[in-house]
């Protein structure tokens, strides 16, 4: 399933990706993620794992330099602007836009191809229902519980019709009980939509639950290394 030599026309392909800060290489990866699969990148903080996500998402800080290509479903997206990559991003914070309602957050994410206000609101409402938050459309995001916010963030990503998902320790700030529940929900939905998933974390439990390939990064002091 993770045979590096095979070329997938579908899925997310990281081809000889290496990110450096100055002369120091932080991380280098060469890996394919098939639809519905999860690649977990583990490492302590400062090891460059979030930088990898930023590179794939298209918003790498210009202080870093990167080599290698990123292909999504057979298309090279290495130089594409972040807006066209269709990356589904989840951070450790839900990052709901505080000036919009819960529904507004989702409508903002509905692709422009869905035309008409009613249709877009309908789509957003359905997505909320999918994560068990029917009737939360007009709520102020700041009034939700931690678990509810995490669900809204997931729904927002899913409603944007992403091509793949990038998860940056999305469960680390949740309570232990809630963490399992949200983790299951996220992986389940990604699998159902056959989305390739890249997860970076320092929690071994995340890696275990992901049931996928695992890359462990060395601490920041030494050069980053692939598998």
């Amino acid at each position: 399933m993770t045979d590096p030599s095979a070329t997938h026309a579908t899925g997310l392909r990281l081809e000889n990706v290496a990110i450096a800060l100055g002369s120091r290489t932080l991380v280098s990866v060469d890996h394919d993620i098939a639809p519905g699969d999860v690649l977990t990148v583990m490492g302590p903080s400062g090891s460059g794992k979030s930088t990898l996500l930023a590179f794939i998402g298209g918003f790498l800080d210009p202080v870093f330099s990167a080599r290698g290509r990123v292909h999504c479903n057979g298309t090279d997206i290495t130089g594409a602007p972040p807006q066209t990559r269709r990356a589904g991003l989840l951070f450790q914070d839900p990052l709901l836009f505080p000036h919009m309602s819960v529904g507004g957050n989702l409508v903002f994410a509905v692709p422009p191809s869905v035309a008409g206000r009613t249709a877009r609101r309908q789509r957003a409402g359905d997505a909320l229902g999918d994560v068990g938050l029917d009737g939360f459309f007009d709520r102020d995001p700041d009034t939700l519980s931690g678990g509810q916010k995490a669900r809204v963030a997931l729904a927002r990503v899913l409603v944007s019709d992403p091509a793949f998902m990038l998860l940056d320790e999305p469960f680390s700030k949740l309570d232990a009980g809630l963490r399992d529940q949200i983790r299951r929900l996220v992986f389940e939905r990604a699998k159902a939509r056959r989305l390739p998933v890249l997860l970076v974390t320092h929690d071994a439990a995340d890696a275990e639950a992901a049931h996928g390939a695992l890359i462990e990064l060395a601490p920041a002091a030494s050069d980053g290394a692939g598998p």
């Binding site: 930023a54 972040p82 990559r85 269709r86 990356a87 990052l95 836009f97």
Partner: peptide, 10 residues
């Protein structure tokens, strides 16, 4: 990251 999220959402 808010901007990253928004940009990633298209």
């Amino acid at each position: 990251r808010y901007e990253a999220v928004a940009a990633a959402l298209g």
